[in-house]
Amino acid sequence: MADIADYANDLMLERLDDMLHSRRSVTLTSSAEFCEDCGDDIPSARRLAAPGCTRCIDCQALDELERRH
C-alpha cells in the first residue's frame, strides 16, 4: 500500500516532467547582432551563450545594476 511519501514523490515527478516538457517547447529568438543601447557588435560567443540577447555584456550589466537601485 502506498503511503503519503509515495504520492508526494509521484506528484513531484509529474510536475517536473510537465516543466521539462514545456521548457522543450519554448522557441528561442535569435540574438541581435548589435547592442540596442550602444550600437557595438555583440560577440558571437555572447549570442550563443544568451540566446535572444539584445545588449552587449557591458550594457546588460549596467541595465541590471540600474534595476537594482
Rank of each mutant, 00 (worst) to 15 (best):
M1A: 14
M1W: 08
M1V: 12
A2E: 12
A2N: 09
A2I: 11
D3T: 11
D3S: 08
D3Y: 08
D3L: 05
D6E: 13
D6R: 05
D6T: 13
A8P: 04
A8W: 05
A8K: 11
N9A: 13
D10P: 04
L11C: 03
L11K: 10
L11S: 02
L11E: 01
M12D: 00
L13E: 10
L13I: 10
L13Y: 08
E14W: 07
E14R: 13
E14Q: 10
E14S: 12
R15G: 11
R15N: 14
R15C: 10
L16E: 01
L16V: 05
D17L: 08
D18W: 10
D18Y: 12
M19V: 09
M19P: 00
M19A: 15
H21V: 00
H21P: 00
S22F: 08
S22P: 06
S22T: 14
R23W: 09
R23K: 11
R23D: 12
S25H: 15
S25E: 15
S25C: 04
V26A: 02
V26I: 10
V26R: 03
T27E: 14
T27P: 06
T27I: 15
T27G: 12
L28P: 02
L28Q: 09
T29I: 05
T29C: 07
T29E: 13
T29G: 11
S30K: 12
S31M: 03
S31F: 01
S31G: 03
A32I: 05
E33Q: 07
E33W: 04
E33C: 01
F34C: 05
C35R: 01
C35H: 02
E36H: 10
E36I: 06
E36N: 08
D37Y: 08
C38S: 00
C38H: 02
C38L: 03
C38F: 02
C38R: 02
G39P: 03
G39A: 06
D40K: 13
D40L: 12
D41Y: 06
D41E: 05
D41M: 06
D41W: 06
I42P: 08
I42Y: 10
P43Y: 05
P43I: 03
P43T: 05
S44N: 10
S44A: 14
A45P: 07
A45R: 14
A45N: 13
A45W: 13
A45K: 12
R46C: 01
R46W: 01
R46G: 02
R46K: 05
R46V: 02
R47G: 04
R47W: 00
A49C: 06
A49K: 15
A50G: 04
P51V: 07
G52M: 01
G52W: 03
G52A: 03
G52T: 02
T54P: 04
R55W: 03
R55V: 00
R55Q: 02
R55L: 07
I57N: 08
D58K: 09
D58G: 05
D58M: 06
C59T: 04
A61N: 14
A61H: 12
L62S: 15
L62I: 07
D63K: 14
E64M: 02
E64R: 13
E64H: 06
E64D: 04
L65R: 14
L65K: 15
E66Y: 07
R67Q: 14
R67I: 06
R67K: 15
R67L: 15
R67G: 11
R68I: 00
R68T: 01
R68V: 03
H69W: 10
H69C: 08
H69R: 14
H69S: 13
